[in-house]
Design a protein around this nucleic acid. Structure first.
Length: 323
DNA sequence: ACTATTTGACCAGC
DNA sequence: GCTGGTCAAATAGT
């Protein structure tokens, strides 16, 4: 009773230990990659993993509840159902909910507000006592169409340099299926540099669309996942772990195609996006080689991969990817 | 017209 | 009674 920490089950302790070991391993990896070229983006990814690992561990240590209890996320729908209608008019149901007592949380702090791969909708903002900055409340965009109960809170905790604390509540039960196929990436390391690949769905003469805007400067960008791609396929295993770089060699070229470098643990490829003769967007993927730390395209390869983006299915279609 | 954000109101938990 | 989380009308944006 007098213990400062709640009593832990052996499963909790194992989770805590696993989390610490994971953090230790990520830190070791971080130490290794700092020595390498492209260290900053790889390091950033690892720092995120390290912080998540420690956050999860801390939440295990701090929670006084068992796994079974914490995994049960209270649903606002369930709680609003219990709202008494005797004192409130049926029409005005504002604030009619049950406050969350405990639920699965995951807190991370970062100097920027990077896209976490999910679509969020802001539903509130509140000035918090003894806090300089207001807290912003977000729910999953698919709360109603897919009954996804995930929410998050974002609060600025420091201005210079900016630091944000993001707390996630509940798990996404929605499928990450965007209504507008758009990938927006911010690069906190390099200030306002950003990359936007925007596909115009309004061009509905056929199943494909054209690239509206490809805007980038020539620094590396990281796509930890491809949230716009839904279907689990063998190709997605490749996509999921790719890092995405605009190719420097194209900087002064004016052409109707755009080249990007895709890198994962053991692949390097050039993705060339272009508008095909029939107006739809296509891309080819060809293996690259690294020499002396400088990336260059392997022009001798004929083992290219044809990729189309089908907006009706929201799928990248791979043809001839046999390796 | 439709969707997203803002903001004051409302209510549960402490 | 205070505080924080959520709702929903009003407003802004596209």
């Amino acid at each position: 009773m007098e213990s400062p920490l709640p009593e832990k089950s052996s499963a909790d302790l194992k989770r805590a230990i696993d989390g610490l070991i994971r953090g230790q391993e990520f830190t070791r990896q971080l130490k290794e990659i700092i020595k390498k070229p492209l260290a900053t983006i790889m390091a950033e990814d690892l720092v995120g993993k390290i912080m998540n690992s420690f956050s999860e561990t801390l939440s295990v240590i701090n929670s006084g509840e068992s796994d079974e209890d914490t995994a049960e996320v209270k649903s606002p729908e369930d709680s609003s159902g219990s709202c008494k209608s005797t004192t409130t008019s049926f029409k005005d149901r504002r604030g009619c909910y049950k406050r969350r007592k405990t639920s699965e949380t995951n807190t991370k702090e970062s100097s920027d507000l990077v896209d976490d791969g999910h679509a969020w909708r802001k539903y509130g903002q509140k000035q918090i006592l003894h806090s300089t900055y207001p807290r912003h409340y977000f729910r999953c965009t698919h709360k109603y169409d897919q009954n996804c109960q995930a929410t998050k809170q974002v609060q600025k905790i420091q201005d210079n340099p900016p630091l944000f604390r993001t707390t996630y509540y509940g798990n996404h039960t929605c499928k990450p299926f965007p209504r507008v196929s758009q990938i927006i990436l911010d690069t906190p390391i390099h200030g306002d540099s950003s990359i936007l690949l925007s596909f115009d769905r309004n061009n509905n003469n056929n199943n494909y669309s054209s690239i509206q805007n490809v805007n980038y400067n020539y620094q590396p960008y990281n796509i930890p996942t491809f949230p716009s791609i839904k279907q689990e396929t063998k190709e997605e295993v490749f996509q999921r772990s790719c890092t995405f770089y605009p190719k420097i060699e194209d900087q002064n070229q004016s052409s109707n195609s755009d080249n990007f470098l895709l890198a994962n643990d053991d692949h390097l490829s050039t993705l060339t996006v272009f508008e095909a003769s029939d107006g739809h967007m296509a891309a080819t993927l060809s293996p690259d080689v690294i020499s002396s730390g400088v990336y260059s395209s392997c022009t001798t390869s004929t083992d290219n991969l044809e990729i189309d983006f089908d907006f009706e299915e929201s799928l990248w279609n791979f043809e001839g990817y046999n390796s």
